[in-house]
């Protein structure tokens, strides 16, 4: 039990930097599309680690299932809204930033 608990702690600690780098990416990246990259991927991996860590520390089966459900929901919602926002931006003829 203690082993699982410690493993969960490590997972949560791994997850936080992903969130932080997602925010840094949001602030540093040059245009809307690259910011979408930062947000969609980094935050979902971060949330995935946090959920994994909490699931390892959970005591009941349905807590694990709920955590998984929440993660999947966020995953679906953020990838779909990423696509929708990117599409709206393309249709608005916002040119992607390029290095040159």
């Amino acid at each position: 039990m203690a082993f699982l608990h410690n493993l969960g702690t490590i997972c949560i600690l791994i997850g936080i930097p992903f969130f932080v780098s997602g925010t840094i990416g949001l602030l540093r990246f040059p245009d809307i599309y690259t910011r979408l990259h930062a947000l969609t991927k980094a935050d979902n991996v971060g949330l995935g680690f946090v959920v994994l860590g909490l699931a390892l520390q959970a005591e009941q089966w349905n807590t694990v299932a709920r955590l998984l459900l929440i993660w999947l929901l966020v995953l679906v919602a953020s990838s779909a809204s990423c696509h929708l926002v990117a599409r709206a931006a393309l249709r608005k003829k916002i040119q992607p930033w390029s290095r040159s």
Binding site: V76, A77, A80, H83, L84, R87
Partner: peptide
């Protein structure tokens, strides 16, 4: 709606 949105609605509304 586009396919992505339609699928999102299909998933989310029953949930």
């Amino acid at each position: 709606p586009g396919p992505v949105l339609a699928t999102l609605v299909r998933l989310l509304v029953p949930l």
